[in-house]
Design a protein around this nucleic acid. Structure first.
Length: 836
RNA sequence: GGACUCGUAGCUCAGUGGUAGAGCGCUUCGUUGACAUCGAAGAGGCCAGAGGUUCGAUACCUCUCGGGUCCACCA
């Protein structure tokens, strides 16, 4: 062993070992209680940023439960991130001097698809480097055909249940990006917007939007406002920049008499509040701004001008005609902006699909109130409730191509036909065959809001067998074939899924018709390996003798031959999926900043589709800021690639540093000192291991010294007072670490381990035992350390696994070793306690 | 306007109803075999301020001040 621990020599090797052992899949503990976490899917369009390293919390939980013997599933996936991705891509196009309008829908989609696919592999590599024990065989992507099919189904069901409706309403519309947005995607900024006092016949009103004047269908005053009492309900004659007009004066309580002059113009087509007022008073909707951000023909001679230009020119004209009483140039208000491009968001009337949230949100509130979902840290509960209580119907239409296209068609008579994805032949109402599909796609959160359900529902619990393209083709043609496999031990009648090795797509399943155990020989020939099968070991030896080779047969050369009866893909839907075992998932662990956009939607949709909550617990972690405490963002250029730091400090140190000294749910700034401390800690571990292995050799190089003993065995072994105390303290450490992990106090668990291993075990105990080491004290020393390694494994998996491997020497892996237990309290002792 | 959160050592942050903790930094000392990515010893805090509850508050409650975040959205 080297004096200094070198993570670079260890990490990739260990990760490969884990993967090859199949430990990441729930099959590692097939009989345990199910425990599952779905990875919050990162956006597929970009590499991970440092904040994603906080997934460490999930890995800690998964590794802990796996060691406890639970059937543990951590399911990875990526999200197509509709608007985010298309926005990034369009920016790229713009840099190349092009625009999305240069391409038709299909071409643009393909281009974005290619762009995204380039990044997806990178994300996977990053997650592996951080040591995350994700079950890669279950990986999912929001645009996988089987996922999309389920999303369609949900939409259809909601439509049939009356939970989805189409409505002509105001939406937040970005005329620059050409799409509408949900309320969550609008940001506000304080801006100086001059307040114009305009003469409206006998009245004067104040507005920041004089250019929308052409869309006014009323002016409003407060019913209690004595100044304007005489005008209420009457029509007044006004002068406008495009001639004389008449307009109604209405009374509505929403008008604040103290603002401006106490008179408001009502433009139902371009203001959310006015839209509501318009509904209350039956006012017509006059749209004067088009979706391209220009004034339309209703604006007379100003039509064709962009909003900003139109405003300037309208004001000029008003000045000329003496229609302006005054301008308050210093007026500041909060202007709605597009969260992506920062251009002003317009309120425009548009026909869209909406989700009726009333019932859904009540259900989502109820399950948390009833404790069916528990939220940690607890204070996020109030944010959850607050958001849901104020939630209004959810606009799920997006006018972009990147995403899941809405499976709805409109016939020539404007009837809508919603399907589960298939193209309808004719309209059900008027039998018209002239149908056009809605060009919009779903809001990304509509699909990711179903993530726990769809990922588990499209993953089958049967084992998967990969087949090459040509073999797959043969199987598809219905030929029964025999295949040789090394890793499985099936019986006749077992079912196996067939997967295309190249594309990863499932193409059917097979039932084992014949199964035979064989011996295989691996022959390396010109960089390629071939396998030869023999019926028995004797036959193999005979063959080798013929070739004048020595018969060195590895026990792993056992193989199994099977022939399958092929069954088609369509039948897959009737096969048991992971859903049955793992839904509801155990914990949803994510950054708190997507509580509203994602967590609430998963709860609403999860309950709606499955009748059950999608997860039993929600655990929030904080954000990782840059070293100055500022939020990391691409535009600021302070984003840190986790791989850079993994290279420098090792994955274990990154993981440990993120957990240590940070209370669950709190933000933290990236702090290099802490990374260094964590790296020093791993070196400390390494040198403890080095010391112990040196002593092992010095004591008795040949004899079999057991690797690990339980606390009970150690209790019987410890004679010296220091040893006894050490065993007691280790037992206490087991209790403490377990308790802290169970309570999601990962920082306390990590701090406890750090403190104990370094300052108790190394600084004191080893220093003491050094002078008096013998076989007995060595056993205690060694076993206590093995227990500490196991406790530390979820936090620092690589180095603990590496040391464990060096000590145990056999094929056991720490990742699937049992979690250390305290000594069983003897009945005698516990009666004593109760008597006291 | 509403909600949440933070204020503890020089810096970054844990923590607890009962003598105040870690990492980094700082001071002094230590080179023989686990480790200088180390060890030993040490300096450094009226735990933002005020009031209340309590035998006792840094912790619980109220208010004030000062950071941060989120929501609503102003014509």
């Amino acid at each position: 062993m080297n004096k200094v621990y070198n993570h670079k020599e260890v990490e990739d090797k260990i990760y490969k070992k884990w993967e090859e052992s199949g430990s990441f899949a729930p099959e590692a503990n097939p009989k345990g209680n199910p425990f599952s976490i779905i990875l919050p899917p990162p956006n597929a369009n970009a590499p991970l940023h440092f904040g994603h390293a906080m997934y460490t919390v999930e890995d800690i939980l998964i590794r802990y439960h796996r060691m406890k013997g639970d059937k543990s599933l951590w399911l990875p996936g990526t999200d197509h991130a509709g608007i985010e991705t298309q926005f990034v891509f369009e920016k790229k196009l713009k840099e190349e001097g092009k625009s999305r309008l240069d391409y038709d829908r299909e071409t643009l989609y393909k281009m974005i698809e290619n762009y995204v696919n380039e990044n997806r592999g990178g994300i996977e590599r990053q997650l592996r480097r951080l040591g995350f024990s994700l079950d890669w065989s279950r990986q999912k992507y929001t645009l996988d055909p089987d996922i999309v099919r389920l999303v369609y189904k949900t939409f259809k069901k909601m439509y049939d249940d009356g939970l989805i409706y189409r409505d002509y309403r105001l939406v937040n519309y970005c005329t620059y990006d050409g799409t509408s947005f949900s309320d969550l995607e609008v940001i506000y900024e304080e801006r100086k917007n001059p307040l114009y006092y305009i003469k409206y016949g006998p009245l004067v009103l104040a507005t920041t939007r004089p250019e929308t004047k052409f869309g006014d269908t009323a002016v409003a005053v407060n019913p209690a406002d004595k100044r304007y009492k005489e005008y209420i309900g009457k029509e007044i004659e006004i002068e406008t920049v495009i001639g004389k007009a008449k307009i109604k004066v209405i009374a509505d309580v929403f008008v604040d008499p103290s603002f401006g002059t106490g008179v408001v113009k009502i433009t139902p087509a371009h203001d959310f509040q006015d839209f509501d007022v318009g509904k209350r008073h039956n006012l017509p909707l006059v749209q004067v701004i088009n979706y391209d951000g220009k004034m339309n023909e209703k604006a007379g001679k100003f039509s064709g001008l962009y909003i900003k230009q139109a405003r300037t020119e309208v004001v000029e004209e008003m000045k000329k005609k003496g229609m302006l009483e005054k301008i308050d140039e210093s007026y500041i208000n909060r202007t709605p902006l597009c969260y992506k491009c920062k251009n002003p968001i317009e309120s425009l009337p548009l026909e869209q699909w909406f989700v009726k949230v009333e019932g859904l949100k009540k259900g989502a509130i109820k399950v948390v109130k009833e404790g069916k979902i528990k939220i940690y840290p607890k204070n996020f509960e109030s944010i959850y409730f607050q958001w849901l209580e104020g939630l209004e119907d959810w606009n799920i239409s997006r006018q972009i191509v990147w995403g899941i296209r809405i499976p709805a068609w409109k016939c020539e008579n404007s009837h809508w036909i919603v399907t589960e994805g298939e193209t309808p032949k004719k309209c059900a109402k008027c039998t018209s065959k002239k149908l056009t599909q809605d060009t919009d796609t779903f809001d990304t959160w509509f699909s990711s809001g179903q993530w726990p359900y769809v990922t588990l529902k499209t993953n089958y619990s049967l084992p998967k067998m990969g087949f090459d393209e040509d073999v797959a083709d043969q199987v598809l043609k219905g030929k029964t074939k025999t295949y040789r496999l090394r890793d499985h031990n099936f019986k006749v009648g077992d079912k196996v899924l067939f997967k295309n090795t190249q594309t990863g797509e499932l193409f059917g399943y097979g039932i084992v018709k014949e199964a035979e155990e064989t011996i295989i020989e691996k022959i390396n020939y010109k960089d390629e390996s071939h396998f030869k099968t023999y019926k028995s070991l004797d036959e193999l030896i005979k063959a080798l003798k013929l070739r004048n080779q020595n018969a060195k047969v590895n026990p792993k050369t056992k193989a199994y031959s099977y022939s399958y009866e092929f069954r088609p893909l369509e039948e897959l839907e009737n096969i048991e999926t992971l859903f049955e075992t793992f839904y509801p998932t155990s914990i949803m662990e994510t950054a708190y900043d997507i509580l509203k956009a994602w967590v609430t939607r998963m709860v609403m949709l999860g309950i709606y589709i499955t009748g059950e909550v999608p997860f039993k617990q929600v655990l929030f972690h904080g954000l990782v800021k840059d070293p100055y405490g500022k939020k990391m963002s691409k535009s600021k250029g302070n984003v840190v690639d986790p791989l850079e730091l993994v290279d420098e400090y090792g994955a274990d140190s990154i993981r440990f540093a993120l957990i240590y000294g940070n209370a669950t749910g709190n933000d933290q700034a990236l702090f290099y000192g802490k990374l260094q401390a964590a790296r020093n800690f791993s070196n400390k571990l390494w040198n403890i291991a080095r010391f112990i292995s040196m002593k092992r050799e010095a004591l008795n190089p040949k004899s079999q010294i057991p690797n690990s003993l339980t606390i009970e065995q150690l209790n019987n072994l410890a004679i010296e007072k220091v040893d006894k105390e050490m065993v007691d303290k280790v037992e206490e450490l087991i209790e403490k670490t377990t308790r802290h992990i169970e309570k999601f106090e990962f920082n306390l668990a990590a701090e406890g381990l750090y403190e104990f291993i370094w300052h108790e075990f190394a600084d004191k105990y080893i220093e003491d035992v050094k002078k008096r080491i013998n076989e007995n004290s060595f056993l205690i020393l060694n076993s206590c350390f093995m227990i500490q390694l196991a406790l530390l494994h979820p936090f620092m998996p690589f180095i603990t696994e590496e040391i464990f491997g060096k000590f145990s020497g056999n094929n056991r892996l720490l990742i699937t070793e049992p979690w250390p237990l305290q000594a069983q309290k003897s009945t005698e002792k516990s009666t004593e306690n109760t008597e006291n």
